[in-house]
């Protein structure tokens, strides 16, 4: 028996919206640890890894590991029938071939249940090693989304260059080229600026840097890699899940784009770099 209740149903709705266009069918792995998924897009250049830990659910019961194969578009259709403030419960029998989604409104006077047929999906599971990345960038997820969207109107790929002081996004296309540089705003810098503006008697203006790019860079080695913007734009559908996005890059390795899901886990996207031949 698998049973998981999430009070903030909007989280599950948002998770599905962020992955349903990338992956068609996927196996959800339900274990005592939580509700997880790993799936690649049809071209096998990107991968999504989702983890919703059991401790983040309001109620969680998993007597035996269960794999639930679902069509994500159909799952999303069902979850769209839940209101944002509904509680969502997922239920499945160990040997059953359906999953039940139960929605309950905050007043508990409207209860709906939707049954969805499960499917057998033959997928490859990749072993992703725990790697120390050469560069880790943490920035506003809105800003990252804006950059990817803006650049995709100029070109098809983006080159991300991380140095200790900045992260630079570059693209080029038939109409021209574009460079966007976000400078690192360390905690130290922000505090300093705050003190200064307070002395100057300026109000709230200091938040320009702390609420603007808010770029944090952890660098072992400068890295420059090129990626297809189409996929990055798809990853950005997870923006509403978290204020910040974390990018991890290493030479000739897929980038990891991570959105934390408060108190529950994460959704991580991996994308293979474009390599010059």
């Amino acid at each position: 028996m698998f049973e998981a209740r999430i009070l903030q149903g909007s989280i599950l709705k948002k998770v599905l919206e962020s992955i349903k266009d990338l992956v068609t069918d996927a196996n959800f792995e339900c274990t005592a640890n939580g509700f997880a998924l790993q799936a690649m897009d049809s071209s096998h250049v990107s991968l999504v890894a989702l983890m919703l830990r059991s401790t983040g659910f309001d109620h969680y019961r998993c007597d035996r590991d269960v794999t639930m194969g679902m069509n994500l578009l159909n799952m999303s259709k069902m979850l769209k029938c839940a209101d944002n403030d509904d509680t969502i419960t997922m239920k499945a029998d160990d040997a059953g071939d359906v999953v039940t989604f139960m929605f309950e409104n905050p007043k508990a006077d409207k209860i709906s249940d939707f049954q969805m047929k499960l499917m057998d999906i033959d997928t490859e599971h990749l072993g992703i090693p725990d790697t120390e990345y050469e560069a880790t960038v943490k920035m506003s997820s809105n800003e990252f989304q804006r950059i990817c969207r803006d650049l995709s109107s100029i070109g098809d790929t983006v080159t991300i260059a991380v140095t200790k002081d900045s992260v630079k996004f570059t693209t080029s296309g038939d109409i021209g080229e574009a460079n966007i540089t976000c400078r690192r705003t360390s905690d130290g810098d922000m505090k300093e600026e705050k003190v200064k503006t307070e002395e100057d008697g300026e109000k709230v203006h200091n938040t320009k840097s702390s609420e603007g790019q808010n770029v944090d860079i952890d660098l072992q080695e400068p890295v420059t890699l090129t990626f297809a913007l189409r996929y990055l734009n798809s990853f950005c559908k997870a923006t509403s899940l978290c204020e910040n996005v974390r990018l991890q890059l290493s030479k000739e390795l897929p980038v990891v784009v991570q959105y934390l899901i408060e108190d529950m886990g994460y959704v991580r996207f991996y994308l293979a770099p474009k390599i010059e031949e």
Partner: peptide, 14 residues
């Protein structure tokens, strides 16, 4: 020309 390898060339099967 830039090529994009599949993820299997970076990560092995689990």
């Amino acid at each position: 020309v830039a090529s994009q390898n599949r993820l299997e060339s970076f990560f092995g099967a689990a």
